[in-house]
Write a protein that binds this DNA or RNA. Structure first.
Length: 490
RNA sequence: GGUACCGUGGCCGAGUGGCUAGGCGGAGGUCUGCAAAACCUUAUACAGCGGUUCGAAUCCGCUCGGUACCUCCA
Protein backbone atom coordinates (compact mmCIF):
# COMPACT_ATOMS: atom_id res chain seq x y z
CA UNK A 1 0.00 0.00 0.00
CA UNK A 2 1.23 3.46 -0.87
CA UNK A 3 2.16 5.37 2.24
CA UNK A 4 1.02 8.92 2.70
CA UNK A 5 2.95 9.37 5.90
CA UNK A 6 4.33 12.85 6.34
CA UNK A 7 7.10 13.62 8.77
CA UNK A 8 8.25 17.05 9.87
CA UNK A 9 11.94 17.18 9.09
CA UNK A 10 13.91 19.53 11.34
CA UNK A 11 16.56 19.71 8.64
CA UNK A 12 14.25 21.27 6.03
CA UNK A 13 11.79 22.74 8.54
CA UNK A 14 8.78 21.35 6.75
CA UNK A 15 6.69 18.23 6.47
CA UNK A 16 7.91 15.75 3.90
CA UNK A 17 6.45 12.55 2.48
CA UNK A 18 8.24 9.68 4.17
CA UNK A 19 10.18 7.66 1.64
CA UNK A 20 12.57 5.12 3.15
CA UNK A 21 16.01 4.71 1.61
CA UNK A 22 15.69 0.93 1.31
CA UNK A 23 12.05 -0.10 1.60
CA UNK A 24 10.61 -2.03 3.25
CA UNK A 25 13.45 -1.53 5.72
CA UNK A 26 13.61 1.52 7.94
CA UNK A 27 16.51 2.50 10.19
CA UNK A 28 15.78 4.74 13.13
CA UNK A 29 18.22 6.06 15.72
CA UNK A 30 17.14 7.91 18.85
CA UNK A 31 19.39 9.45 21.48
CA UNK A 32 18.82 7.58 24.73
CA UNK A 33 19.42 8.49 28.34
CA UNK A 34 22.59 9.20 30.24
CA UNK A 35 22.33 6.73 33.07
CA UNK A 36 23.45 8.68 36.11
CA UNK A 37 20.06 9.24 37.73
CA UNK A 38 16.43 8.20 37.66
CA UNK A 39 14.43 9.02 34.55
CA UNK A 40 12.06 11.97 34.94
CA UNK A 41 9.01 13.10 33.00
CA UNK A 42 11.23 14.76 30.43
CA UNK A 43 12.78 11.40 29.58
CA UNK A 44 9.36 9.83 29.08
CA UNK A 45 8.54 12.12 26.20
CA UNK A 46 11.11 11.08 23.59
CA UNK A 47 10.72 7.46 24.67
CA UNK A 48 6.96 7.53 24.12
CA UNK A 49 7.11 9.75 21.03
CA UNK A 50 9.46 7.45 19.18
CA UNK A 51 7.77 4.37 20.57
CA UNK A 52 4.65 5.51 18.71
CA UNK A 53 6.72 6.19 15.59
CA UNK A 54 8.21 2.71 15.90
CA UNK A 55 4.77 1.13 16.35
CA UNK A 56 3.18 3.04 13.47
CA UNK A 57 5.96 2.34 10.99
CA UNK A 58 5.64 -1.35 11.77
CA UNK A 59 1.87 -1.07 11.44
CA UNK A 60 2.39 0.34 7.94
CA UNK A 61 4.36 -2.78 7.10
CA UNK A 62 7.92 -1.50 7.39
CA UNK A 63 10.64 -3.66 8.85
CA UNK A 64 12.10 -1.26 11.37
CA UNK A 65 15.45 -1.47 13.09
CA UNK A 66 15.19 0.88 16.03
CA UNK A 67 18.45 1.75 17.77
CA UNK A 68 18.39 3.67 21.04
CA UNK A 69 21.65 4.08 22.88
CA UNK A 70 22.59 4.15 26.53
CA UNK A 71 25.14 6.83 27.32
CA UNK A 72 27.37 5.46 30.00
CA UNK A 73 30.52 7.51 29.49
CA UNK A 74 31.67 10.85 28.34
CA UNK A 75 29.32 13.61 29.38
CA UNK A 76 31.48 16.06 31.21
CA UNK A 77 30.38 18.10 34.15
CA UNK A 78 30.93 21.75 33.55
CA UNK A 79 29.77 23.20 36.80
CA UNK A 80 31.52 20.85 39.18
CA UNK A 81 34.94 19.24 39.02
CA UNK A 82 36.34 19.89 35.63
CA UNK A 83 37.33 16.91 33.60
CA UNK A 84 35.11 14.53 35.46
CA UNK A 85 32.19 13.07 33.65
CA UNK A 86 28.79 12.60 35.23
CA UNK A 87 29.07 8.89 35.68
CA UNK A 88 32.49 9.20 37.28
CA UNK A 89 31.40 11.93 39.63
CA UNK A 90 28.51 9.92 40.93
CA UNK A 91 30.78 6.92 41.40
CA UNK A 92 33.29 8.85 43.47
CA UNK A 93 30.59 10.23 45.67
CA UNK A 94 29.11 6.89 46.45
CA UNK A 95 32.33 4.87 46.34
CA UNK A 96 31.02 2.55 43.70
CA UNK A 97 32.43 1.28 40.48
CA UNK A 98 31.24 3.43 37.57
CA UNK A 99 29.77 0.39 35.89
CA UNK A 100 27.85 -0.38 39.06
CA UNK A 101 26.14 2.98 38.77
CA UNK A 102 25.52 2.39 35.10
CA UNK A 103 23.96 -0.99 35.71
CA UNK A 104 21.78 0.30 38.52
CA UNK A 105 20.30 3.21 36.62
CA UNK A 106 20.04 1.29 33.36
CA UNK A 107 17.90 -1.31 35.13
CA UNK A 108 15.77 1.42 36.67
CA UNK A 109 15.35 3.04 33.28
CA UNK A 110 14.26 -0.22 31.70
CA UNK A 111 11.79 -0.79 34.50
CA UNK A 112 10.25 2.65 33.92
CA UNK A 113 10.05 2.04 30.17
CA UNK A 114 8.25 -1.25 30.72
CA UNK A 115 5.81 0.46 33.05
CA UNK A 116 5.11 3.04 30.35
CA UNK A 117 4.60 0.19 27.87
CA UNK A 118 7.47 1.45 25.71
CA UNK A 119 8.57 -1.33 23.38
CA UNK A 120 12.17 -2.40 23.58
CA UNK A 121 14.33 -1.02 20.78
CA UNK A 122 15.84 -3.50 18.33
CA UNK A 123 19.33 -2.68 19.53
CA UNK A 124 20.40 -0.78 22.64
CA UNK A 125 24.13 -0.17 22.36
CA UNK A 126 26.27 1.45 25.03
CA UNK A 127 28.96 4.04 24.49
CA UNK A 128 31.44 2.13 26.63
CA UNK A 129 31.02 -0.90 24.41
CA UNK A 130 32.08 1.02 21.31
CA UNK A 131 35.32 2.73 22.32
CA UNK A 132 37.28 1.02 19.55
CA UNK A 133 34.83 2.13 16.89
CA UNK A 134 34.91 5.65 18.28
CA UNK A 135 38.68 5.74 18.06
CA UNK A 136 38.45 4.54 14.47
CA UNK A 137 36.05 7.33 13.61
CA UNK A 138 38.35 9.93 15.16
CA UNK A 139 41.15 8.56 13.01
CA UNK A 140 38.98 8.79 9.92
CA UNK A 141 38.02 12.38 10.63
CA UNK A 142 41.70 13.24 11.21
CA UNK A 143 42.72 11.55 7.96
CA UNK A 144 40.24 13.69 6.10
CA UNK A 145 41.82 16.72 7.73
CA UNK A 146 38.95 17.92 9.88
CA UNK A 147 40.48 17.33 13.30
CA UNK A 148 43.69 18.16 15.10
CA UNK A 149 45.49 16.86 18.15
CA UNK A 150 46.67 19.01 20.99
CA UNK A 151 48.27 17.64 24.17
CA UNK A 152 46.65 14.24 23.90
CA UNK A 153 43.18 15.54 23.04
CA UNK A 154 41.63 15.67 19.60
CA UNK A 155 39.32 18.48 18.50
CA UNK A 156 37.05 18.89 15.53
CA UNK A 157 38.14 21.77 13.28
CA UNK A 158 34.79 23.48 12.76
CA UNK A 159 36.24 26.40 10.84
CA UNK A 160 37.89 24.17 8.28
CA UNK A 161 34.86 21.93 8.03
CA UNK A 162 32.63 24.90 7.36
CA UNK A 163 34.66 25.83 4.29
CA UNK A 164 33.66 22.57 2.58
CA UNK A 165 30.35 21.86 4.28
CA UNK A 166 27.75 23.83 6.16
CA UNK A 167 28.11 23.82 9.92
CA UNK A 168 24.78 25.03 11.25
CA UNK A 169 22.51 23.56 8.58
CA UNK A 170 20.35 21.84 11.16
CA UNK A 171 20.20 24.51 13.86
CA UNK A 172 20.24 27.52 11.56
CA UNK A 173 23.24 28.97 13.32
CA UNK A 174 25.92 30.96 11.57
CA UNK A 175 29.52 30.42 12.44
CA UNK A 176 30.27 34.16 12.59
CA UNK A 177 27.60 34.60 15.23
CA UNK A 178 28.93 31.72 17.27
CA UNK A 179 32.39 33.15 17.00
CA UNK A 180 31.34 36.60 18.13
CA UNK A 181 29.40 35.37 21.07
CA UNK A 182 31.48 32.51 22.34
CA UNK A 183 34.90 34.12 22.10
CA UNK A 184 34.22 35.98 25.33
CA UNK A 185 33.54 32.83 27.29
CA UNK A 186 36.35 31.07 29.05
CA UNK A 187 37.67 29.20 26.04
CA UNK A 188 40.08 26.38 26.34
CA UNK A 189 43.56 27.23 25.20
CA UNK A 190 43.99 23.92 23.44
CA UNK A 191 41.32 24.68 20.89
CA UNK A 192 41.94 26.69 17.74
CA UNK A 193 38.47 28.13 18.03
CA UNK A 194 36.10 28.21 20.96
CA UNK A 195 33.42 26.46 18.94
CA UNK A 196 35.63 23.46 18.16
CA UNK A 197 34.43 20.39 20.04
CA UNK A 198 36.29 17.46 21.49
CA UNK A 199 36.44 14.10 19.70
CA UNK A 200 38.85 12.58 22.20
CA UNK A 201 39.73 13.95 25.58
CA UNK A 202 42.85 13.14 27.57
CA UNK A 203 41.92 11.93 31.04
CA UNK A 204 43.44 13.63 34.02
CA UNK A 205 44.62 11.45 36.91
CA UNK A 206 41.43 11.63 38.97
CA UNK A 207 39.29 10.47 36.06
CA UNK A 208 38.46 6.81 36.59
CA UNK A 209 36.95 5.89 33.25
CA UNK A 210 39.60 5.97 30.53
CA UNK A 211 40.83 3.91 27.65
CA UNK A 212 44.05 3.76 25.66
CA UNK A 213 44.14 5.46 22.29
CA UNK A 214 46.80 6.65 19.83
CA UNK A 215 46.66 10.10 21.45
CA UNK A 216 46.35 9.49 25.17
CA UNK A 217 44.69 7.55 27.94
CA UNK A 218 41.32 9.18 27.75
CA UNK A 219 37.70 9.02 26.72
CA UNK A 220 35.61 9.91 23.69
CA UNK A 221 33.80 13.20 23.15
CA UNK A 222 30.10 13.08 23.82
CA UNK A 223 28.88 13.72 20.27
CA UNK A 224 30.88 10.83 18.92
CA UNK A 225 29.02 7.86 20.32
CA UNK A 226 25.81 8.54 18.43
CA UNK A 227 27.63 8.96 15.13
CA UNK A 228 29.51 5.74 15.67
CA UNK A 229 26.68 3.56 16.89
CA UNK A 230 24.15 4.78 14.35
CA UNK A 231 26.47 4.08 11.43
CA UNK A 232 27.56 0.75 12.86
CA UNK A 233 24.04 -0.64 13.15
CA UNK A 234 22.11 1.33 10.55
CA UNK A 235 24.74 2.16 7.95
CA UNK A 236 26.38 5.44 7.03
CA UNK A 237 23.06 6.73 5.78
CA UNK A 238 19.79 5.82 7.46
CA UNK A 239 16.22 7.06 7.55
CA UNK A 240 15.27 8.70 10.84
CA UNK A 241 17.29 10.29 13.62
CA UNK A 242 15.32 11.39 16.63
CA UNK A 243 15.82 13.03 19.98
CA UNK A 244 14.77 15.89 22.20
CA UNK A 245 14.76 19.43 20.88
CA UNK A 246 17.43 20.40 23.39
CA UNK A 247 19.82 18.07 21.59
CA UNK A 248 19.42 19.82 18.25
CA UNK A 249 22.35 22.08 18.98
CA UNK A 250 25.10 21.32 19.50
CA UNK A 251 24.72 17.55 19.71
CA UNK A 252 22.95 16.76 16.45
CA UNK A 253 24.70 19.52 14.56
CA UNK A 254 27.99 17.96 15.59
CA UNK A 255 26.81 14.50 14.58
CA UNK A 256 26.12 15.80 11.09
CA UNK A 257 29.56 17.42 10.99
CA UNK A 258 31.28 14.24 12.17
CA UNK A 259 29.52 12.08 9.61
CA UNK A 260 30.27 14.44 6.78
CA UNK A 261 33.89 14.71 7.83
CA UNK A 262 34.25 10.93 7.99
CA UNK A 263 32.01 9.76 5.13
CA UNK A 264 31.29 12.82 3.01
CA UNK A 265 27.54 12.85 3.56
CA UNK A 266 24.81 13.39 6.16
CA UNK A 267 23.91 10.48 8.43
CA UNK A 268 20.10 10.75 8.44
CA UNK A 269 17.45 11.67 5.92
CA UNK A 270 14.80 12.78 8.42
CA UNK A 271 15.54 14.52 11.72
CA UNK A 272 12.73 14.44 14.25
CA UNK A 273 12.72 16.40 17.50
CA UNK A 274 10.21 16.15 20.30
CA UNK A 275 9.52 19.28 22.29
CA UNK A 276 10.06 19.71 26.01
CA UNK A 277 7.80 19.27 28.99
CA UNK A 278 7.45 22.42 31.03
CA UNK A 279 6.57 23.24 34.60
CA UNK A 280 4.93 26.64 34.99
CA UNK A 281 6.18 27.44 31.53
CA UNK A 282 9.76 26.45 32.24
CA UNK A 283 11.67 23.46 30.95
CA UNK A 284 11.64 20.48 33.26
CA UNK A 285 15.25 19.53 33.57
CA UNK A 286 18.10 18.43 35.72
CA UNK A 287 19.86 21.76 35.65
CA UNK A 288 16.79 23.67 36.87
CA UNK A 289 16.18 21.08 39.58
CA UNK A 290 12.44 21.24 38.87
CA UNK A 291 12.12 17.72 37.56
CA UNK A 292 9.87 15.00 38.91
CA UNK A 293 11.05 11.44 38.38
CA UNK A 294 8.78 8.82 36.89
CA UNK A 295 8.93 6.79 40.09
CA UNK A 296 7.74 9.84 42.01
CA UNK A 297 4.78 10.17 39.66
CA UNK A 298 3.92 6.52 40.13
CA UNK A 299 4.12 6.76 43.92
CA UNK A 300 2.83 10.31 44.33
CA UNK A 301 5.75 11.10 46.62
CA UNK A 302 6.72 14.59 45.54
CA UNK A 303 5.73 17.94 46.96
CA UNK A 304 4.34 19.11 43.62
CA UNK A 305 2.05 16.11 43.25
CA UNK A 306 -1.41 15.93 44.79
CA UNK A 307 -1.43 12.17 44.41
CA UNK A 308 -0.01 9.25 42.45
CA UNK A 309 -0.50 8.92 38.71
CA UNK A 310 -0.34 5.63 36.88
CA UNK A 311 2.17 5.04 34.07
CA UNK A 312 -0.68 4.90 31.58
CA UNK A 313 -1.97 8.26 32.75
CA UNK A 314 1.48 9.70 32.07
CA UNK A 315 1.51 8.08 28.65
CA UNK A 316 -1.96 9.33 27.76
CA UNK A 317 -1.08 12.80 29.00
CA UNK A 318 1.93 12.93 26.70
CA UNK A 319 -0.04 11.62 23.72
CA UNK A 320 -2.72 14.27 24.18
CA UNK A 321 -0.25 16.86 22.94
CA UNK A 322 1.50 16.83 19.59
CA UNK A 323 5.12 15.80 20.03
CA UNK A 324 6.47 19.04 18.57
CA UNK A 325 4.53 21.23 21.03
CA UNK A 326 5.64 22.04 24.52
CA UNK A 327 3.51 20.32 27.12
CA UNK A 328 2.80 21.95 30.44
CA UNK A 329 2.60 19.72 33.47
CA UNK A 330 0.03 20.22 36.20
CA UNK A 331 -2.03 18.05 38.51
CA UNK A 332 -5.23 19.21 36.82
CA UNK A 333 -3.94 18.28 33.38
CA UNK A 334 -2.93 14.82 34.56
CA UNK A 335 -6.26 14.22 36.24
CA UNK A 336 -8.08 15.30 33.09
CA UNK A 337 -5.94 12.91 31.06
CA UNK A 338 -6.69 10.08 33.44
CA UNK A 339 -10.45 10.63 33.25
CA UNK A 340 -10.37 10.89 29.49
CA UNK A 341 -8.38 7.69 29.18
CA UNK A 342 -10.74 5.80 31.47
CA UNK A 343 -13.65 6.99 29.37
CA UNK A 344 -12.11 5.38 26.29
CA UNK A 345 -11.30 2.18 28.17
CA UNK A 346 -14.88 2.00 29.47
CA UNK A 347 -16.15 2.38 25.93
CA UNK A 348 -14.02 -0.53 24.83
CA UNK A 349 -15.81 -2.78 27.33
CA UNK A 350 -19.26 -1.30 26.79
CA UNK A 351 -19.16 -2.58 23.20
CA UNK A 352 -19.42 -6.16 24.46
CA UNK A 353 -22.70 -5.41 26.19
CA UNK A 354 -24.44 -3.85 23.22
CA UNK A 355 -27.05 -5.89 21.39
CA UNK A 356 -26.39 -5.73 17.66
CA UNK A 357 -29.06 -4.44 15.28
CA UNK A 358 -29.88 -5.37 11.70
CA UNK A 359 -29.03 -1.92 10.55
CA UNK A 360 -26.41 0.67 11.48
CA UNK A 361 -27.76 4.18 11.89
CA UNK A 362 -24.32 5.76 11.94
CA UNK A 363 -21.24 5.39 9.75
CA UNK A 364 -18.39 4.15 11.92
CA UNK A 365 -16.20 2.95 9.05
CA UNK A 366 -15.05 6.49 8.33
CA UNK A 367 -13.16 6.62 11.61
CA UNK A 368 -10.54 4.28 10.30
CA UNK A 369 -9.65 6.73 7.55
CA UNK A 370 -9.79 9.68 9.95
CA UNK A 371 -7.45 8.04 12.44
CA UNK A 372 -5.08 6.97 9.75
CA UNK A 373 -4.98 10.44 8.24
CA UNK A 374 -4.20 11.90 11.64
CA UNK A 375 -1.29 9.50 12.16
CA UNK A 376 -0.06 10.13 8.63
CA UNK A 377 0.01 13.83 9.40
CA UNK A 378 3.26 13.78 11.35
CA UNK A 379 1.96 11.43 14.04
CA UNK A 380 -0.83 13.73 15.22
CA UNK A 381 -1.86 11.67 18.23
CA UNK A 382 -4.13 14.35 19.78
CA UNK A 383 -6.27 14.27 16.64
CA UNK A 384 -6.37 10.47 16.76
CA UNK A 385 -7.60 10.70 20.33
CA UNK A 386 -10.22 13.30 19.38
CA UNK A 387 -11.58 10.85 16.78
CA UNK A 388 -11.58 8.04 19.31
CA UNK A 389 -13.55 10.25 21.70
CA UNK A 390 -16.08 10.90 18.95
CA UNK A 391 -16.30 7.18 18.40
CA UNK A 392 -16.75 6.69 22.14
CA UNK A 393 -19.68 9.09 22.09
CA UNK A 394 -21.28 7.14 19.26
CA UNK A 395 -20.85 3.85 21.11
CA UNK A 396 -22.49 5.33 24.21
CA UNK A 397 -25.39 6.59 22.14
CA UNK A 398 -25.85 3.11 20.72
CA UNK A 399 -25.69 1.73 24.22
CA UNK A 400 -28.42 4.17 25.19
CA UNK A 401 -30.56 2.99 22.31
CA UNK A 402 -30.35 6.30 20.48
CA UNK A 403 -28.37 4.86 17.58
CA UNK A 404 -27.90 1.34 16.24
CA UNK A 405 -24.97 -0.72 14.98
CA UNK A 406 -24.79 -4.11 13.34
CA UNK A 407 -22.73 -6.92 14.80
CA UNK A 408 -20.21 -6.40 12.04
CA UNK A 409 -19.90 -2.68 12.83
CA UNK A 410 -19.62 -3.35 16.54
CA UNK A 411 -16.71 -5.66 15.89
CA UNK A 412 -15.23 -3.08 13.58
CA UNK A 413 -15.37 -0.43 16.32
CA UNK A 414 -13.84 -2.79 18.85
CA UNK A 415 -11.01 -3.70 16.48
CA UNK A 416 -10.40 -0.07 15.60
CA UNK A 417 -10.14 0.93 19.26
CA UNK A 418 -7.89 -2.03 19.89
CA UNK A 419 -5.62 -1.13 16.98
CA UNK A 420 -5.28 2.57 17.68
CA UNK A 421 -5.56 2.82 21.43
CA UNK A 422 -3.67 -0.34 22.36
CA UNK A 423 -1.43 -1.32 19.45
CA UNK A 424 -0.44 2.07 18.10
CA UNK A 425 -0.74 4.51 20.98
CA UNK A 426 0.44 1.81 23.36
CA UNK A 427 -2.18 2.28 26.06
CA UNK A 428 -2.89 -0.82 28.08
CA UNK A 429 -5.27 -1.49 30.91
CA UNK A 430 -3.88 -1.33 34.38
CA UNK A 431 -3.10 -4.76 35.66
CA UNK A 432 -5.10 -4.56 38.86
CA UNK A 433 -8.16 -3.86 36.75
CA UNK A 434 -7.49 -6.78 34.47
CA UNK A 435 -7.08 -9.29 37.27
CA UNK A 436 -10.69 -9.57 38.40
CA UNK A 437 -10.55 -12.99 39.92
CA UNK A 438 -13.48 -15.36 39.97
CA UNK A 439 -13.48 -15.22 43.74
CA UNK A 440 -13.81 -11.46 43.89
CA UNK A 441 -16.42 -11.63 41.18
CA UNK A 442 -18.54 -14.10 43.11
CA UNK A 443 -18.23 -12.28 46.41
CA UNK A 444 -19.25 -8.92 45.03
CA UNK A 445 -22.13 -10.40 43.05
CA UNK A 446 -23.44 -12.07 46.19
CA UNK A 447 -23.21 -8.91 48.23
CA UNK A 448 -24.95 -6.96 45.48
CA UNK A 449 -27.80 -9.47 45.45
CA UNK A 450 -28.29 -8.80 49.15
CA UNK A 451 -28.27 -5.11 48.42
CA UNK A 452 -30.82 -5.62 45.66
CA UNK A 453 -33.10 -7.32 48.20
CA UNK A 454 -32.67 -4.40 50.56
CA UNK A 455 -33.53 -1.97 47.79
CA UNK A 456 -36.62 -3.97 46.92
CA UNK A 457 -37.72 -3.61 50.54
CA UNK A 458 -36.92 0.09 50.39
CA UNK A 459 -34.29 -0.47 53.04
CA UNK A 460 -32.07 2.23 51.59
CA UNK A 461 -30.01 2.52 54.76
CA UNK A 462 -28.71 -1.00 54.24
CA UNK A 463 -28.40 -0.51 50.49
CA UNK A 464 -26.34 2.63 50.88
CA UNK A 465 -24.28 1.10 53.66
CA UNK A 466 -23.28 -1.75 51.37
CA UNK A 467 -22.45 0.61 48.55
CA UNK A 468 -20.40 2.88 50.81
CA UNK A 469 -18.48 0.01 52.34
CA UNK A 470 -17.71 -1.45 48.92
CA UNK A 471 -16.63 2.02 47.86
CA UNK A 472 -14.10 2.08 50.65
CA UNK A 473 -12.68 -1.15 49.24
CA UNK A 474 -12.35 0.62 45.90
CA UNK A 475 -15.30 -1.20 44.39
CA UNK A 476 -17.55 1.28 42.60
CA UNK A 477 -21.22 0.34 42.37
CA UNK A 478 -23.41 1.79 39.65
CA UNK A 479 -27.13 1.20 39.46
CA UNK A 480 -28.37 0.79 35.93
CA UNK A 481 -31.74 -0.20 34.44
CA UNK A 482 -30.29 -3.71 34.03
CA UNK A 483 -29.36 -4.01 37.68
CA UNK A 484 -26.29 -3.00 39.66
CA UNK A 485 -22.90 -3.07 37.97
CA UNK A 486 -19.55 -2.72 39.64
CA UNK A 487 -15.92 -2.11 38.80
CA UNK A 488 -12.64 -1.55 40.54
CA UNK A 489 -11.96 2.15 40.93
CA UNK A 490 -8.74 4.03 40.57
C1' G B 1 23.70 39.88 20.99
C1' G B 2 22.48 35.51 17.76
C1' U B 3 19.30 31.18 16.48
C1' A B 4 14.66 28.50 16.84
C1' C B 5 9.84 29.02 18.56
C1' C B 6 5.39 30.23 21.26
C1' G B 7 1.09 33.40 23.02
C1' U B 8 -6.30 29.76 21.56
C1' G B 9 -12.31 29.84 26.23
C1' G B 10 -11.56 28.12 34.00
C1' C B 11 -7.42 24.11 32.90
C1' C B 12 -4.90 20.98 29.13
C1' G B 13 -4.62 21.09 24.04
C1' A B 14 -5.72 20.51 18.10
C1' G B 15 -6.32 23.63 14.10
C1' U B 16 -2.23 27.73 8.57
C1' G B 17 -7.88 31.41 4.84
C1' G B 18 -14.40 30.22 4.82
C1' C B 19 -16.78 24.06 7.60
C1' U B 20 -18.60 22.08 15.79
C1' A B 21 -11.61 20.07 17.19
C1' G B 22 -11.30 16.99 21.48
C1' G B 23 -10.61 16.04 26.82
C1' C B 24 -11.26 17.87 31.92
C1' G B 25 -14.09 21.32 34.62
C1' G B 26 -18.94 24.67 34.83
C1' A B 27 -24.45 25.36 34.00
C1' G B 28 -29.38 23.22 32.76
C1' G B 29 -32.06 18.73 31.57
C1' U B 30 -33.26 13.07 30.89
C1' C B 31 -32.78 8.63 33.88
C1' U B 32 -32.75 7.50 39.24
C1' G B 33 -35.10 6.35 46.21
C1' C B 34 -30.37 9.01 46.43
C1' A B 35 -25.65 8.74 44.15
C1' A B 36 -22.58 7.28 40.11
C1' A B 37 -22.33 6.33 34.99
C1' A B 38 -24.39 7.39 30.35
C1' C B 39 -27.10 10.60 27.12
C1' C B 40 -29.08 15.58 25.53
C1' U B 41 -28.58 21.00 25.63
C1' U B 42 -25.43 25.07 26.79
C1' A B 43 -21.79 29.09 28.06
C1' U B 44 -16.66 30.89 27.83
C1' A B 45 -11.59 31.80 22.50
C1' C B 46 -8.07 32.80 19.28
C1' A B 47 -2.18 38.70 23.42
C1' G B 48 -2.72 43.98 21.33
C1' C B 49 -2.67 47.36 17.08
C1' G B 50 -2.58 47.98 11.88
C1' G B 51 -2.54 45.76 6.87
C1' U B 52 -3.75 42.08 2.67
C1' U B 53 -8.54 39.61 1.34
C1' C B 54 -15.27 38.96 -0.55
C1' G B 55 -13.68 36.50 4.06
C1' A B 56 -8.15 35.56 9.03
C1' A B 57 -7.19 32.33 15.07
C1' U B 58 -4.88 30.95 10.33
C1' C B 59 -1.02 35.42 5.65
C1' C B 60 2.12 40.30 6.33
C1' G B 61 4.06 44.33 9.62
C1' C B 62 4.67 46.48 14.34
C1' U B 63 4.04 46.29 19.75
C1' C B 64 3.74 43.58 24.30
C1' G B 65 4.67 39.00 26.91
C1' G B 66 6.92 34.05 27.34
C1' U B 67 10.24 29.66 26.28
C1' A B 68 14.43 26.85 24.52
C1' C B 69 19.44 26.64 22.62
C1' C B 70 24.24 29.31 21.87
C1' U B 71 30.14 23.62 22.34
C1' C B 72 31.67 19.95 26.41
C1' C B 73 25.50 22.42 30.03
C1' A B 74 20.96 15.24 28.19
Amino acid sequence: MESKLQIYNSLTRKKEIFEPLNPPHVGMYVCGPTVYGDAHLGHARPAITFDVVFRYLQHLGYKVRYVRNITDVGHLENDADEGEDKITKKARVEQLEPMEIVKYFTDRYHENMDQLNVLHPSIEPTASGHIIEQIEMVKSIMEHGYAYEKDGSVYFDVDKYNKEYHYGKLSGRKLEDLYQYTRELSGQKEKRNSFDFALWKKADPKHIMHWPSPWSEGFPGWHLECSVMSSKYLGEKFDIHGGGMDLLFPHHECEIAQSNAATGHDPAKYWMHNNLITVNGQKMGKSLKNFITLNEFFSGEHESLNRAYSPMTIRFFILQAHYRSTLDFSNDALTAAEKGMNKLLDTYHVIDEIKPSDHSSVDVKRYEKLCREAMDDDFNTPIVLAHLFDLSKTVNQVNDGKETLTAEDLKFVKDLLSTYLFDLLGIREEEDKATDTALLDGLVETILKIRQEAKKNKDYVTADYIRDELNKLNIIVKDTPDGAKWELGK
